Computed example of a mutant assay.
Amino acid sequence: MTFPRWIAGALLMLAAATSQAFDFKTVGAAPAILYDAPSTKGGKLFIVPRGTPLEVVLTYGDWVKVRDLSGELAWTEAKGLSAKRNVIVRSANVKIRATADDNGAPVFIADKGVLLELVEPAAGGWVKVRHRDGLTGYIKNTDIWGL
Results as ranks from 00 to 15, higher is better:
Glu117Asn: 14
Pro106Glu: 14
Ile96Thr: 11
Thr136Ala: 14
Lys25Thr: 04
Ala105Thr: 12
Trp75Thr: 03
Tyr35Asn: 06
Ala74Thr: 01
Ile109Ala: 04
Arg132Gly: 12
Glu72Gln: 11
Ala105Arg: 10
Ala98Arg: 12
Thr76Gly: 03
Arg130Ala: 15
Asp133His: 00
Ala16Ser: 10
Pro4Cys: 12
Trp145Met: 07
Gly146Arg: 03
Ala92Arg: 07
Lys79Trp: 02
Glu77Phe: 02
Ala16Ile: 04
Ala21Trp: 00
Gly51Lys: 03
Asn93Met: 04
Val107Cys: 05
Val66Gly: 04
Asn141Lys: 11
Ile33Gln: 11
Leu58Val: 05
Arg132Tyr: 12
Gln20Asn: 06
Ala92Met: 05
Gly9Gln: 09
Leu14Ala: 15
Pro106Ile: 10
Lys128Cys: 10
Ile88Cys: 02
Glu120Gln: 11
Ala122Asn: 07
Gly125Arg: 13
Lys128Thr: 10
Gly42Asp: 11
Arg50Asn: 14
Val127Thr: 13
Pro31Phe: 10
Ile88His: 01
Arg130Thr: 04
Arg5Leu: 13
Pro53Leu: 06
Leu118Ser: 06
Leu69Pro: 00
Gly9His: 09
Arg130Trp: 03
Ala74Ile: 05
Gly113Ile: 05
Met13Asp: 06
Asp111Met: 02
Glu117Tyr: 00
Ala105Cys: 00
Val94Leu: 03
Ile144Glu: 08
Ile88Asp: 07
Gly28Arg: 06
Gly113Cys: 05
Gly113Ser: 03
Ser70Met: 01
Leu135Thr: 09
Ile7Lys: 10
Ile144Met: 08
Arg132Phe: 15
Gly28His: 02
Gly51Asn: 05
Tyr138Phe: 15
Ala110Ile: 03
Val66Phe: 09
Ile7Asp: 08
Glu72Asp: 13
Gly113Arg: 09
Pro38Trp: 15
Leu14Lys: 00
Lys79Val: 12
Trp63Ile: 03
Gly28Glu: 03
Glu117Gln: 14
Val119Phe: 01
Ser70Gly: 05
Phe24Glu: 06
Phe24Cys: 03
Thr99Glu: 13
Lys65Met: 11
Arg90Thr: 15
Asp68Gly: 14
Phe24Leu: 05
Asp101Thr: 03
Ser39Glu: 08
Trp126Pro: 01
Asp101His: 09
Ala92His: 11
Ala16Trp: 04
Val94Gly: 09
Gly104Cys: 05
Leu135Val: 05
Phe3Ala: 13
Val56Ser: 04
Arg97Leu: 15
Asp23Thr: 11
Asp101Lys: 06
Arg50Ile: 01
Gly124Trp: 06
Pro121Glu: 15
Val27Asn: 02
Gly137Ala: 10
